[in-house]
């Protein structure tokens, strides 16, 4: 922890030296997170999160709660640390050697980074959908069945078939692919691939779904379908979504958190953030003056 404290002002000084106008204004105006980082019914709570990539202080002292059965959107300009923060929630950063994470991550009262916490079990509970659709180079069926198989969640073939169909239905893909479940997952269009990835994630029935810019590689129609799907999924899952598109955040989320240069600047109800931002930076960002 000592190390963190020492590195933090250094990193800030460095970013000020090389930074642009926005950077300077951040140092001048940021004091603490504006808004309500805590919520009534949290699924995941994080406190004082710091993330380092080697010397680079990627996330600085972020505290944020994500409410159960709602969509929390993380927005902010490129390189603001929102994806890094998201990947900390299911320990996807574990495999990156230079990445050091500190702070408290609590999922339903359990410490995500505790020694006793198994990352494999954690990732079964906290699923993830990535920016670029990344179906396995297998059939559509096998893509969805893979998670069920490795976790041993079904007893027999019939049950597996049902679960696969159910997941594809929930992801709104079943009608389009029911005749070609044995076709390659990669043969689908981009939007279908992304929904396949969502089906793959919800098949193992996680509690939380993390989405890292799930629609950024999709055309508007596929994006609209994905957004509809997200709205339906929040009935059963807690969703945290990183997005570049403010319209998307406004459409799908209940709460929005605005990140800037590794800091959580402002967090609050989505309506409030987009209509009445409290912080100068948030206002500048959502009115499109930078980003």
């Amino acid at each position: 922890m000592n190390e963190l404290m020492m590195a933090s002002p250094m990193a800030r000084a460095k970013s000020e030296l090389t930074g642009n106008q926005v950077n300077v204004s951040l140092a001048a105006t940021f004091e603490h997170t504006v808004g309500t980082p805590c919520c009534d019914n949290p699924k995941i709570q994080t406190k004082n999160v710091d993330v380092f990539y080697a010397e680079n202080h990627a996330i600085q002292d972020v505290s944020l709660d994500m409410g159960a059965n709602e969509v929390t959107a993380l927005i902010g300009p490129s390189g603001c640390g929102k994806s890094t923060y998201l990947r900390c929630l299911n320990r996807m950063n574990d495999s990156i050697d230079i990445c050091k994470v500190s702070g408290d991550f609590i999922l339903d009262g359990e410490d995500i980074y505790a020694k006793s916490q198994d990352p494999v079990l954690l990732r079964a509970r906290v699923g993830m959908v990535f920016q670029k659709p990344n179906p396995f180079p297998k059939s559509i069926y096998d893509n969805v069945a893979y998670g069920l198989r490795i976790h041993g969640l079904t007893q027999n073939k019939a049950e597996l078939d049902d679960m696969v169909e159910d997941s594809l239905r929930k992801a709104g893909l079943f009608e389009e692919v029911k005749d070609r479940l044995n076709a390659a997952g990669t043969s689908l269009s981009g939007g279908q691939q992304q929904r396949l990835c969502i089906a793959r994630t919800i098949a193992i029935q996680p509690e939380v779904i993390l989405m890292d810019e799930p629609a950024s590689a999709l055309d508007p129609i596929a994006t609209a379908k994905t957004e509809e799907l997200i709205a339906e999924l929040k009935e059963n899952f807690t969703i945290v979504i990183v997005t570049h598109s403010m319209q998307q955040a406004a459409r799908v989320s209940q709460r929005t958190a605005y990140f800037h240069m590794g800091r959580l600047i402002e967090v609050g109800e989505t309506d409030q953030i987009f209509t009445n931002p409290q912080h100068e930076l948030t206002e500048k960002y959502i009115t499109g003056r930078f980003g």
């Binding site: 299911n90 996807m92 495999s95 699923g127």
Partner: peptide, 10 residues
């Protein structure tokens, strides 16, 4: 591909 597999808990 690795992330996809790790993401579903492999």
């Amino acid at each position: 591909l690795r992330e996809a597999a790790l993401g579903v808990g492999a």
